[in-house]
Each structure stands twice: as structure tokens, then as C-alpha cells.
Write a protein that binds this DNA or RNA. Structure first.
Lengths: 220, 220
DNA sequence: ACTTATATTGACCGATCGGTCAGCACAATC
DNA sequence: GATTGTGCTGACCGATCGGTCAATATAAGT
């Protein structure tokens, strides 16, 4: 990527940063914070190592920036939910939204997973603060659904963790999944099949009757 | 150190090796293969770095040895299962066996997770060979259960992945779970509560009526 | 054209990486 | 007592780590 381009104009700052962030997300997600090296990121971005530090300041700043970006993406999921909402559609949307998120940002999801695996040294505040509130508020609503007889009296936290884990599995364990399935990557049909399966098992397992036959139709 | 009367083989060697393996499992599980350093392992084992290499040969040999040890532990799960088996008890046992496995070997489980996250560079053969066969054989049996009307006609592979992910979550994401729950670690009651929840949702979600022989698990 | 500000990067720093090796400690054998 | 074999480890190796900096190139402002 050295300047051999026919056009003499240099890429804008934003373009370069995006390029670096993409490369860094790949490397960090594969090897974790300690296992990743700036040289690997630089090579993947097609830039000299010093240039990475010029734009990002330090390895840690780059890493934290990627974590924040991923947290921002994640925060948009399941924003509006009330006790009056229909459990079937809400949980269904939740499952599918998380599946889409994992498919759209596989490297970011893996980056997050590696951070948690390492003991969440950079995310402990977020987990015990913002995310805990997120879970608590959603759990309270699910609890009300149970009290209203709309679903079984399951522990809402375990239910949330179940949906998280079941959906994340297909992005973070993609190497295992594709190794077992004998396929390089999941197809569109795979994703739809998995989503329908999770919808079926989790809703039915929680005693939720799917309101309409076309509940699987989700629009963004 | 230890004065042993019978000295056919050196018992100290085994002790030292176990010590090293324990330390290495912790470090590798936290930081992955690249992120782990022999110095960190040596410090945790209370030995000089050269001693680690004296016993284990190389970083890679040590890592592969840990992976193999974890694979052997894992292989014992769900060994005997036939089409005549009762789906309720089999799946229930599967869920609880995996929960126990994760609680018994948290570092080993995380080590495995980190390896998969990195793209399974050392495990691709195992995933596409031994483990794929494991899944295929169990999937065939589940398929027969569906054909016999013992349960819903769900895709067996997705079901196996669901149980894997849902149970593994509590060991590999323990930092996230405890951060959200505000607890340092899961209690015995937590484990039982989670196991009962997963049993309830997954069995019911697959249209399996819990057998009377498991009556002690139904109500809690 | 000249000045200023920003982009870019090769060269370098001390620290740490995985790994080698010579040599010491020590018990068993001769 | 001398020899041998094994356990053990400090010292060292070249490579790579994250990060700094001076020098240069390019763009922008006047």
C-alpha cells in the first residue's frame, strides 16, 4: 500500500484510521491484547509500524478504542422494551438481533470475547456498571411478564445469558462450528435455520406461545 | 525434597510437571498461546524459566500437551447413548455433565476457548475429525428420537451447539457473569439454579416431557 | 516564494520474547 | 575416591516487543 497509486492525492485521515481499526480488530480478536503486536497490525494495514502509533497513540489506546466501538454497537440492541411488549416478539427480535450483530461484526465480537476470557481487565467497570444496569432493567420486565402469566417463571438473568451464549457461539466459535460442519463459513440458510431453531426452543421452553405464524419476519 | 522409601521412579518429577501444567493452564487460558510467556508461567510455578523448558521442551509442546489433556477430559462426556435411551435423562445428564466439566476445569475450558477463538491453529484436525464424528453419531441418535415422536423435529447439530454454548458460557464468560451478578464466583446454588433452568427450557423447548424418574428435578 | 502545520517513517531504545548451553549440585555406581 | 548420570539454572543469544524521535515529505496559509 505504499504510494504507488496513480492518483497523487493522499487518503484522508478518516480513511487511514478506519483501515487501521479494521486491521487491529482482526489481530486483537485472534490473539487477544497481549498476543497481538503492533507489527502484525501494521503489516495487515499496509503501513509502517510508527504510523500506527502516530494515529493511535499507543497499543492500549487503540485497543480501548476498539472495545468502546464494539460496546457502542452492542448498546443499540433491545433498547425499547416495556412490560406491555409482547414477549414473543421481543425475545424473537432479541435472538435475531444478536445473530445479526455477530454476523455483521465477527471480529469485534471475538475481540470482546477475548477481553472477557482474559478476565476483562479493561471492561470490569463497564460490566459491573452500565451492562449490569442493562441486564437488571430487562430482567425486571421479564419478571413482570412471568407475574402476568405471559410466560414461565424462569430466572430472567439465566434467560438473558442463554440468548447471549447461544447466539454468540456461532461467531466466536466459528472455527469449531465450521470445522464440525465441514463448511468454511455459515450460509444465509444456516443463519435462518439457527435463528428459527433458537426461537422455537427458547420461546417454547419459556412457555411463550408465538403470537402470529409470521413472527419470524423481522424488519430493521 | 520428599524422602521416599521406594524409589523406582522419580515421584518428584510428576509433582513438578503437575505444578508446571497447572501454572501454564492458567496463563495460556488468560492470554492465549501468543500472549502467554514462559516467564509468566515460570513465575506462577515458582521455578526458573529454564526449568520449564527442561521439563516441557518448548512452549508449543507444553501448549499442545495441555490441549490434549483437556480433550481427554472432554471425551468422557456422553459416551454411552443409544436410540433406546430416554431423551429426557440423556439431555439432562448432558447439560449437567457439561456444567460440572466447566466448573471442574475452568482454566482448561478457557484454554480451549482461546484456541478456538484464535482460529484453532492446533486443533483443526481434531475438530474436523474426531469431534465431527462425535457430533455426527450423537446427532443421528437425536434424529431417531425425533422420528420416533419422542421430541420435536429440531436440527440435532443446533441442539448440541446450544447445550455446549449455554453451559460453557458460565466458565468462559465468568468475568462477565460475575461482573453482572456482582458476585466474585458462582455459588453451588447458582449452578443448581442454572442447570435446572437450562434443563427446563431446553427439554420443554424440544417438546420433551421430563420423565417421572427425574421427578426430583422438576420442582425446585 | 516563504512559512507554518501536519503526515510519514527509518532508525533506534531498553525490555522481553523463546530457546540454548555450559556448568554446578548431588546421589548412585564403580 | 573417582566417575557417571540426572536435575537444575544463571547467563547468554538473536529476534521481537511497545514506544520515541529526528528527519523528511507533503499540504495549507499568507
Amino acid at each position: 500500500m505504499t504510494a504507488v497509486s496513480v492518483t497523487h492525492e493522499s487518503p484522508s485521515r478518516e480513511k487511514v484510521e478506519t483501515n487501521i481499526l479494521m486491521a487491529a480488530e482482526e489481530v486483537f480478536s485472534q490473539h487477544g491484547y497481549r498476543g497481538a503486536s503492533l507489527q502484525m497490525i501494521a503489516d495487515r494495514a499496509g503501513l509502517p509500524k510508527a504510523n500506527i502509533l502516530y494515529y493511535m497513540g499507543s497499543k492500549q489506546a487503540l485497543y480501548v478504542r476498539l472495545l468502546n466501538r464494539m460496546m457502542h454497537r452492542w448498546n443499540k440492541v433491545l433498547e425499547d422494551i416495556t412490560p406491555e411488549s409482547d414477549p414473543a416478539t421481543v425475545l424473537s427480535d432479541f435472538i435475531r438481533a444478536k445473530m445479526v450483530l455477530g454476523q455483521r461484526y465477527p471480529e469485534g465480537s471475538k475481540l470482546f470475547a477475548a477481553e472477557i476470557l482474559a478476565g476483562a481487565p479493561f471492561l470490569s467497570d463497564y460490566l459491573a456498571g452500565e451492562l449490569r444496569e442493562w441486564v437488571a432493567s430487562r430482567a425486571a420486565i421479564i419478571q413482570q411478564w412471568s407475574a402476568q402469566g405471559k410466560m414461565d417463571a424462569v430466572d430472567p438473568k439465566w434467560l438473558i445469558f442463554l440468548i447471549w451464549s447461544a447466539t454468540q457461539h456461532y461467531t466466536e466459535y466459528s472455527a469449531q462450528v465450521s470445522g464440525i460442519l465441514g463448511r468454511d463459513a455459515l450460509t444465509e440458510e444456516d443463519i435462518e435455520s439457527i435463528s428459527a431453531f433458537l426461537e422455537h426452543v427458547i420461546l417454547k421452553g419459556c412457555g411463550i406461545t408465538q403470537a402470529s405464524t409470521n413472527a419470524h419476519l423481522v424488519e430493521k
